[in-house]
């Protein structure tokens, strides 16, 4: 077993102990209750919204909060003096965040498929939730490393969520249109909502341009790479060592 895999397994066990996975499961259960309550017709429109928001906003919060609490406990520094590279440490934290997002997305999707009969493209769901969680974990890293304290992280996160989630939600719900529709792809949250149309085959899924679809994936991968190479990896050790 590689050192990255061993660290990943330890990290997942730790997330269970810290009840982060339990909280995620509780939120999934809440989505299921709401979806069941609003009925099949509405649930097909809203399930994608819930999963996209879960994979994006929750990934930022989980990674940011985890990073802050670990800094408080001084547990970031000792990992840097083990035979695990900085890239592996960051990779495992992102992988854990993706794991949490996937767990929630798959459970909610299984529920709507098995209980409510809503069609789900599971292969697309897994790949696209992984992508949404990846880019938002990187954004979470960036926001947490930029913030000086936990309330600073929350403020950064709220600013990000309002800036990128609100316009995307309004476009998705048809509250605004026109030029806003043309630029909504610039929002990673907007891309997440757009992908969920494919996964749950909601209205407009047939009209999706495959070129635009692929370009948006490249765009999110590009953002993740720029954040990782340009900021997170070069500054991680300094941020971790800071007391």
């Amino acid at each position: 077993m590689t050192v990255s895999l061993r660290l990943f397994i330890s990290e997942i066990k730790r997330l269970y102990t810290y009840k982060i996975l339990t909280i995620s499961l509780a939120i999934s259960a809440l989505w299921m209750v709401i979806l069941y309550g609003i009925g099949e017709a509405n649930a097909q429109s809203f399930v994608g919204l819930f999963i996209a928001l879960d994979a994006s906003v929750m990934s930022i919060l989980m990674l940011g909060a985890s990073l802050f609490f670990e800094r408080e406990e001084n547990t970031l520094k000792p990992l840097l003096v083990t035979p695990v590279s900085t890239g592996q440490i960051i990779g495992v934290k992102v992988a854990s965040s993706i794991y949490v997002a996937l767990q929630s997305a798959v459970l909610v999707s299984l529920f709507v498929r098995l209980v409510m009969g809503i069609p789900v493209d599971f292969m697309s769901l897994i790949l696209l939730v992984m992508l949404i969680a990846l880019v938002h974990s990187m954004i979470g890293f960036y926001l947490a490393m930029k913030a000086t304290d936990f309330s600073g992280l929350l403020v950064n996160m709220i600013i990000y969520s309002f800036t990128f989630a609100m316009p995307s939600l309004m476009v998705t719900l048809g509250l605004i249109s026109g030029w806003a529709e043309e630029i909504v792809w610039l929002s990673p949250i907007g891309d997440g909502l757009f992908y969920m149309q494919v996964v749950f085959q909601t209205n407009g899924a047939d009209a999706i341009d495959p070129v635009f679809f692929i370009l948006s994936i490249i765009y999110l991968l590009f953002i993740s790479t720029v954040l990782y190479v340009g900021y997170i990896k070069p500054n991680y050790a300094t941020a971790a060592v800071k007391e």
């Binding site: 050192v3 061993r6 660290l7 330890s10 730790r14 102990t17 810290y18 406990e73 001084n74 547990t75 520094k77 000792p78 990992l79 083990t82 035979p83 695990v84 007391e243």
Partner: peptide, 22 residues
């Protein structure tokens, strides 16, 4: 290290296993 560097919600043994695993 000069300051304690442990996961507070894990036991002493779990903390040691977490790091030794690496």
């Amino acid at each position: 290290f000069e300051l304690p560097v442990h996961f507070n919600k894990l036991s002493g043994l779990e903390n040691m296993q977490f790091f030794q695993n690496l």
